[in-house]
Design a protein around this nucleic acid. Sequence first.
RNA 1: CGGGGCGUGGCGCAGCUGGUAGCGCAUCUGGUUUGGGACCAGAGGGUCGCACGUUCGAAUCGUGUCGCCCCGACCA
Length: 494
Amino acid sequence: MAEEKLTKRSEDFSAWYNEVVERAQLAEHSPVRGCMVIRPNGYGIWELIQKNLDKMFKDTGHENAYFPLLIPQSFMSKEAEHVEGFAPELAVVTHGGGKELEEPLVIRPTSETMIYTMFAKWVQGYRDLPILMNQWANVMRWEMRTRLFLRTAEFLWQEGHTAHETEAEAESEALKMLGVYRTFAEDFMATPVISGTKSDSERFAGALRTYTIEAMMQDNKALQDGTSHNLGQNFSKAFDLKFQGRDGTVQYAWNTSWGVSTRLVGSLIMTHSDDDGLVLPPRLAPTVAVIVPIFKNDEERVTVLTAADAIYADMKSKGFRVKIDARDNMSPGAKYYEWEMRGIPLRIEIGPKDVANNTVVIVPRIPLDTREAPKPGRKQKLFVEVATLCDSVEDLAKELQAQLLKNALARREANTIRGVKSYGEMKEIFASGEGAFVFAGWNGDPTSEAKVKEETKATIRCIPNLEFRSSTAPEKCLVTGEPAKHEVIWAKAY
RNA sequence: CGGGGCGUGGCGCAGCUGGUAGCGCAUCUGGUUUGGGACCAGAGGGUCGCACGUUCGAAUCGUGUCGCCCCGACCA
């Protein structure tokens, strides 16, 4: 009996997302409210994100360290905005060793307070700067409403923390790391992102400025993929992080922090996947290719499996992330559906005919523009010589990676609206349910921002960086008609 | 925190005018199959979220409680 099809994306995006997460065996709800069990298939994606980002951090001079999970409650209170921002979502430990603690400990929602406490001990003079540090950790925020990968109570992330001698140096660091995130999003996640600055209302609690990369999901809602903050001297003043400068005077250090989380896995799912299930960019796919042997009888079985095993061993030895699916209680068709659901970029089919011809059939997860178009209703099937299989897989993986970015970019541009004439027009856009990224002028006033949020549910995702702005800057604020201070992107967001 | 829904084999569900639990998928065994979701035969597996109450008798009725999901508010 065939398993029922996935809910269609177009019918119920939210249900579709949950089904992909569960049926692709990425993650499931834990017995604890709002927490997530990440299964190996999902964790494998995170491991590749970690591995590749970590290399980029090291290449830009950062080192990894680790700080404690529990933070004395008093640390949290030292920076006024920070405590106000996080107080409602703290989980607090009140007992230990069977006794009530003198001072409650909070489970870190982020580690600024702990890390800058330590930095303060480590820094005396300007020669101790800069500190360029990162930690891979779990954090916990008692969110009112949670969603697998996108907003869980506990999540895995990396948080970079740096301390600098000058304001300019800190600003440059914050922007540099935003650039690292943008490069990672495009090159690995195949996700086009718009980088820019958050408006004050969306700024990190305690930051001078918050930078962001914003991606568009397939329901045209925005998702913040990563964030980078210029913390100014707010935390160094709160935690007494001082140094003696080149001129002999004692000064406060300048800090930045930046992070991405397991939310990126959710972002991947919502960006690329389709009605057949998960679609993974090859560079972040725990398994890039799966070999499915096909045979009718025992004789064929031996021939085909021998050939398939040889291919598998060869690819494995060359470092390919490849799997062989030799299960004998399942028909090839059933296997195809399963691996498609799980987002494997390339399927390698090998049957008796292929063995005889020294070929295999490769089926990419999504159609590639670079290859001959498939017949209507069919998948693209590529016949490949066994002798050149590894090169072909490498080429196809690259083509698929590029195709995903191309498709996502085309989709975002098709749903990006510039030159909206009136606020009424924008209200219609967000009332239609289709949604979009709307580029428009804004007077810079939080009041007009709040008004739009209330009336349309759309918020300012960011003030885009120069390269993402419209060629002609809007003159007027779309909401009030006053002179525009910035061009901004309005969108509904996760 | 407000509104709604749901807790019954691994998963999805039925049973709820009370009478001691059933279906589909999955699993196991045997056989036939296998180039797009195989079929036949047999088998195993459940203190019906938890507690108290009503009753001769509770998955079913009542009260309480715990948990999960969805929508909203909230959210670097």
